[in-house]
Design a protein around this nucleic acid. Structure first.
Length: 292
DNA sequence: CACTTGACCTGTCCGC
DNA sequence: TGCGGACAGGTCAAGT
């Protein structure tokens, strides 16, 4: 599930817990999750820094290599110290991952004094080891659009990105990582409600004001979620195995049948761009493009 | 080129 | 209670 706010939250946690630690060994329980798990550079390598790009976790090691981790739908990176001490136990949003490894555990990094678990129920996620200087050359990294919370993401850059997707719906365009990086199904729905735009609106029908509202909505929704520690959805946990709180504040996602907090109309769930889509039929009017 | 669909997997939930 | 089918937060490779 993890989208930008969840991946950002995981990265912030790992930065505190991982940097300075050394990998002692790597155990693979599912080869396809990390085909290079027995690479000779790994034992003895230390974590230097943690970075996020789009929904990608980048763990920089010394020795000039990095581990790239994509959590896809159900991936988790959970840090557990050898003492068994549970970080943040008793946190209000609670709900810890209990005993690791469990049946979703695919890769175990044994560190000095701790373990890092890569869990992934649906096995879509992956880990890749590669030299630092090759990260930027990866095709899918090169194609990524701007980071929505960076200065590079402006109304103009959004309009430029959308120009390439004029023929499709605004929801499909927001999910396109080459338009902007890091939005997934939850935050697409949330941003479109915030901007008052119907998900099935054709990109070509948006005017400058619409794009301006959408730009602001994207930034606001993502910032609020990061502050809340990401969403509280089923498969997402942060580096300490805890859930976030964002869905407590969600306006439409998984709120079908409940009242819109802006106008009281019942939120509906439908299908747009092949994905479950939540919207308020009053605040997000379908746009009819008249022509004689 | 741009858009849509299917595939990758496991688990859960819902209706019969 | 069991079983089949739809669906789940992502993204690529195919297809049109």
């Amino acid at each position: 599930m993890p989208e930008l706010p969840e991946v950002e939250t995981v990265c912030r946690g790992l930065r505190q817990l991982l940097v300075g630690r050394t990998i002692q060994s790597v155990t693979s329980l599912w080869t396809k999750s990390f085909p290079q798990s027995d690479h000779p550079v790994l034992p003895g390598a230390a974590f230097e820094s943690v970075e996020r790009r789009a929904k990608l976790v980048i763990l920089h090691l010394d020795r000039g290599f990095s581990l790239l981790v994509h959590l896809k739908m159900t991936g988790q990176l959970v840090f557990v110290s050898d003492s068994g001490e549970r970080f943040g136990a008793g946190h209000p949003s609670g709900s810890l991952v209990d005993h690791l490894p469990d049946r979703s555990t695919r890769i175990v990094f044994k560190l000095d004094g701790a373990r890092l678990y890569f869990n992934d129920q649906r096995k879509f996620g992956w880990i890749q080891l590669l030299p630092d200087n090759e990260i930027a050359d990866l095709t899918f990294v090169r194609k990524l659009g701007p980071e929505p919370l960076s200065g590079a993401f402006t109304c103009t850059s959004l309009a430029d990105g959308l120009r390439r997707r004029k023929g499709t719906t605004i929801k499909a365009a927001l999910l396109d990582q080459t338009v902007l990086a890091g939005i997934g199904n939850i935050y697409a729905d949330e941003a479109l409600w915030t901007a008052g735009l119907h998900p099935a609106r054709r990109v070509a029908s948006l005017d400058d004001t619409d794009i301006e509202r959408l730009h602001g909505a994207i930034r606001r929704v993502l910032s609020i979620s990061i502050e809340a520690g990401g969403s509280s959805s089923r498969n997402y946990v942060n580096a300490e195995g805890k859930r976030g709180a964002y869905l407590d504040f969600a306006e439409v996602f998984r709120r079908q049948g409940q009242a819109c907090r802006r106008c009281g109309t019942t939120i509906i769930k439908t299908r747009v761009a092949g994905r479950g889509t939540h919207l308020c039929p009053h605040c997000q009017k379908e746009f009819i493009d008249w022509q004689e």
